[in-house]
Design a protein around this nucleic acid. Structure first.
Lengths: 349, 349
DNA sequence: ATTAGCACTCTACAAGAGTGAGTGCTAACA
DNA sequence: TGTTAGCACTCACTCTTGTAGAGTGCTAAT
């Protein structure tokens, strides 16, 4: 059996109706709803076929049909193909996002948090956004003496990410030494990524350190620690309680598990790292079992990567019920992506 | 009518029983439960009195009684008085907290987050913890040239809180100027709090700035912004989904509102700032309507301030149903407070 | 002052009946 | 051969009814 034109139309009608109502949809509904003039009986036959083919399923005998994961998938794929480069009218609906986003962007963190919140309010789903992952190339390094026994170590990375740490000294050093160390570090390390700091460079530095070898080693450790820390792998979530708005998710204690996942943020990293969408849009839709996160088997997740410069990218994700409004979600994500690009590029100019 | 010994005993029995079961408690239960040997009929009479006096109430006719806010209040006050300085056996139950907390404390943020998580797991309530509010005295200040057109401004505050911001320059300056500015700023500003930087000091600095007055003004603004930002008013929450474990809170959509409040963290500040417990313990119990947060009228909140040095303090809070296990919560808070003190003092030594 | 007994109230739970939405099948139809 | 109308059947949902149980308030006896 094959998924011909008419079957596809019926399937789409079923999915669309179910997205709206959340109720199983029956043959009579479709018979009236669609433009193809067919009686409910004919629809019933087709639906029976669609069920055999695995696109829809019945919660119980004598109930309407709901889309299966496979059904959602074909719907989404089809929808994505159609809308590929079309500029939606919904763009306008969320274009006020622009004003909101571009206004006083001082802290990236704040911006991301606001974005997550805005998206959540706009879509009524839970949202997450990961801070951009920078290449971690050292741009500048500064050691300074805060008081007799503490050395402040500040590292500026590409993308103007600033990290710092205070080091307690075991023995006193003077200002002149600090100056020399600053020159030493900057002349050898600037422009390098963490991976490029190999044994050769390390021995070169420690060789020139003279009596302060211990301290130099210590500072190198600090740099590694500070730069390597996954603090910038930070994830912001918002609208987690939107989950509770959808009965099929708020049941039992699955809802609490879901919210927990969003709160812990730990498992969400898999959504970021696993983004292997080949398409140019950077959008990926996970439906039900497709999601890499365990407790989201009853959800759909739409992720999109935004990119600031080459290699500097982050991920936005929307988590909702399987019957989420895919079209709106995708449009919203695209708009936000555009705005983020604008903001960040202005900021980096 | 007066709350005599016997009435108090009965009230306590009612509260205690209700804390355990969450069900309205009837006269017969009390008659068997307590040591005072009274028939259920007598208890009924007393309960009727207690209801008139406003300590307990009936959800509906022919149901048992549940404590009113006033009833909880007397119970808590009484309990607090008794347990004032007693070392509880529960101390031991959560003493493993110590190992957990003291182990690798590199980031204060992480420590606080872990503490919140630990407390939430331990008590099965939602928890919040605010980062300590430091005095904001400037300890050290460092300007450095990252590249031709960007100046890095790092401020170290008392308590070794480090803030930074990158400034885009409008015109190029040389290394020597930066050095001079560093000396200027450090010699005038170090040791001052934000409040102490008055007009006199500002004019003094700008006067000495010469041709770089614009830049100096800019840096002063940055300092004010960076130091004044309430980023350190950060609040960490955990176990918000524990709310859903208590039917009286997970009803309707109040639960979602509650979780929202905890997620937004905005309104929680009132719990921190309003802490005016006169007692030495620093513990404050808000029952129902007493809480300053709107959406927590159906909850009880227990807060405690921890202090690291003079004036450097933060707040821990536990949010649960009115029928929370007050004794356990108070004990847990005390233990955590102790541990935090130990950790922070070791860290600051 | 305390208690035993009784009538009354209200909730929670279960069983049963009715309703409606929806299906599957069969036979008629173009 | 594809489409449609009609009919019997299924199942969830809702409303009603009955019942058991817990608890109270009141009264009379101790």
């Amino acid at each position: 059996m094959e998924l011909d034109e008419r079957k596809l139309k019926i399937l789409k009608a079923i999915v669309r109706n179910y997205l709206e109502t959340g109720e199983p949809v029956g043959s009579r509904t479709i018979s009236k709803y669609t433009d193809l003039n067919l009686s409910s009986a004919t629809i019933r036959n087709e639906m029976s076929d669609l069920e055999d083919m695995g696109y829809i399923l019945q919660p119980h005998t004598s109930a309407g049909r709901i889309p299966s994961d496979k059904g959602y998938r074909t719907y989404v794929d089809d929808m994505m193909r159609e809308k590929a480069d079309e500029i939606s009218q919904q763009q306008q609906e969320i274009s006020d996002m622009k004003d909101f986003l571009t206004e006083k962007v001082e802290k990236v963190e704040e911006l991301l948090q606001n974005t997550a919140k805005l998206l959540a309010n706009n879509t009524n789903y839970a949202t997450m956004i990961s801070a951009p992952r920078f290449a971690k190339r050292i741009k500048f390094l500064q050691l300074s003496l805060v008081d007799d026994m503490s050395l402040l170590c500040v590292v500026v990375l590409d993308g103007n990410i600033i990290k710092n740490k205070l080091v307690k000294l075991s023995k006193q050093i003077d200002a002149e030494t600090v100056l020399k160390l600053n020159i030493l570090f900057n002349s050898t390390l600037n422009g390098l990524t963490m991976e490029e700091i190999n044994l050769g460079i390390i021995t070169k530095i420690t060789g020139q350190a003279g009596e302060h070898m211990e301290l130099v080693k210590r500072v190198l450790e600090i740099i590694a620690e500070v730069v390597g820390s996954d603090e910038d792998m930070k994830i912001y979530t918002s609208g987690t309680t939107n989950i509770l708005k959808y009965p099929e998710l708020s049941d039992n204690n699955r809802a609490s598990e879901l919210i927990n996942v969003l709160e812990e943020k730990q498992q969400l990293t898999s959504l970021i790292t696993e983004n292997n969408s080949e398409e140019n849009t950077g959008i990926q839709v996970y439906i039900g079992d497709e999601t890499p996160v365990q407790n989201m088997k009853d959800c759909s997740v739409v992720t999109m990567t935004y990119e600031i410069e080459d290699g500097v990218q982050g991920t936005i994700g929307i988590i909702g019920p399987k019957r989420m409004d895919y079209e709106k979600v995708v449009e919203s994500l695209k708009t936000v992506k555009g705005q983020l690009d604008v903001v960040f590029k202005n900021n980096n100019e």
